[in-house]
């Protein structure tokens, strides 16, 4: 087993990606995720991989499209404005059912915004900013260890479902250093008979999203995709519950804001307030069932985000009227304060 090391989130993610068998990385510099391409540039050549700095985010995601279509484990990473540029490629990847991992270390927006961490790309990540009826699996790590572990899972899930898996972090998570035990994944070679590699001994493969005849082809393909997504919804939701067993109030929060919420829960528990934390680890598929069940046992649900209230919409759908849903958020790179959360929860009593 690896020993514990102090590592920056971005670097732990990059190292885990290489360990998970990522052989091709394409990216374009943007703060606050620059440690990922820098790490890849340093490590990939000596470990049999390929690092390439693309001319744009658009080129990077399309290089990922090519490398994935050619059968490689491949990824790109960026931050919010860059993620906007990648939406075209993400839609094509979804249409062609190509697996890959995309990292978004979110920063404040809209526009160029700022460079401080934010969670304002929740809609974009979970609803998809590209065209068409498609979904991407979205994983939301809460600490550096989880960044490392979920990166391995991301590659596994991508190949399992032939889907794009987004790791939705934020600037704070990417920049933060914490002790981490780097994962030692068991590398199974994944058979990709659909990939392009030259058609020696087989019929030509065609990797594409174009399906021109609507009635019998594009609709069929969409039905197939929706069935695939239903399967993912049924079996891949993940959430962590912290002190929820006897909770009268729950906070729903992910990523960096879940860390602040956890601090508030701990402090409130010390004062005897029965409060717990529900932390979705998959943002799509959202753990609707788990949250719905929990909501039936509590008086009030407080959603805490570094946004104007985006996950809030999923929380309301999940709670479905079983409890009041309240919201506390900070925008533009500001972080929620645990003292404020404590005040809000106490106000419910």
């Amino acid at each position: 087993m690896s020993k514990t090391v102090l590592m920056k989130g971005n670097e732990a993610l990059a190292e885990s990606a290489i360990r998970a068998g990522c052989t091709h990385y394409f990216g374009y510099p943007i703060t606050p995720q620059n440690e990922i391409p820098a790490y890849m540039a340093k490590e990939m050549p000596g470990r049999g991989g390929c690092f390439l700095q693309a001319e744009s985010e658009i080129a990077a995601i399309n290089m990922v499209f090519g490398a994935s279509g050619a059968g490689a484990r491949t990824m790109t990473s960026t931050s919010s404005p860059g993620m906007s540029l990648k939406q075209e490629g993400l839609s094509y990847l979804a249409g062609a059912e190509l697996p890959c991992v995309v990292v978004n270390m979110m920063r404040g927006g809209p526009g160029l915004g700022g460079i401080a961490g934010s969670q304002a790309d929740y809609f974009q990540a979970t609803r998809g900013g590209g065209n068409g009826d498609y979904r991407s699996i979205v994983l939301a790590p809460g600490n550096v260890q989880e960044l490392a572990d979920l990166t391995v899972d991301a590659f596994e899930l991508a190949d399992k479902y032939r889907m794009v898996v987004t790791i939705l972090g934020d600037g704070y998570l990417g920049q933060m250093s914490e002790p981490v035990v780097l994962p030692e994944p068991t590398l199974k070679s994944v058979d990709k008979p659909w990939a392009v590699s030259g058609n020696k001994g087989r019929k030509p493969n065609k990797v594409m999203s174009l399906r021109l005849s609507p009635e019998d082809y594009l609709e069929k393909h969409n039905i197939h995709l929706q069935e695939l997504y239903s399967g993912v919804e049924n079996s891949e939701t993940r959430a962590e519950q912290y002190m929820t067993e006897d909770a009268e109030y729950i906070i729903v929060s992910y990523g960096t804001s879940s860390r602040i919420s956890r601090k508030a829960v701990k402090a409130l528990r010390e004062e005897g307030v029965k409060v717990g934390l529900f932390r979705p680890v998959t943002l799509w598929p959202y753990p609707m069932k788990e949250l719905n069940e929990l909501a039936g046992k509590v008086k009030k649900v407080l959603t805490v985000e570094m946004s104007a209230g985006q996950m809030l919409e999923d929380v309301k759908v999940a709670v479905n009227g079983k409890a009041d849903v309240d919201f506390y958020g900070k925008m533009g790179g500001a972080v929620p304060e645990s003292a404020e959360i404590i005040k809000i929860i106490k106000g419910y009593r």
Binding site: A59, M63, G66, A67, G69, E88, V196, K206
Partner: peptide, 20 residues
């Protein structure tokens, strides 16, 4: 074997394929 690309992105897709 054939692979599609988004409008204008063929050299990027080709780069990805060739690097693999």
């Amino acid at each position: 074997d054939g692979i599609e690309s988004a409008h204008g992105r063929a050299p990027a897709v080709a780069t990805g394929v060739k690097r693999v």
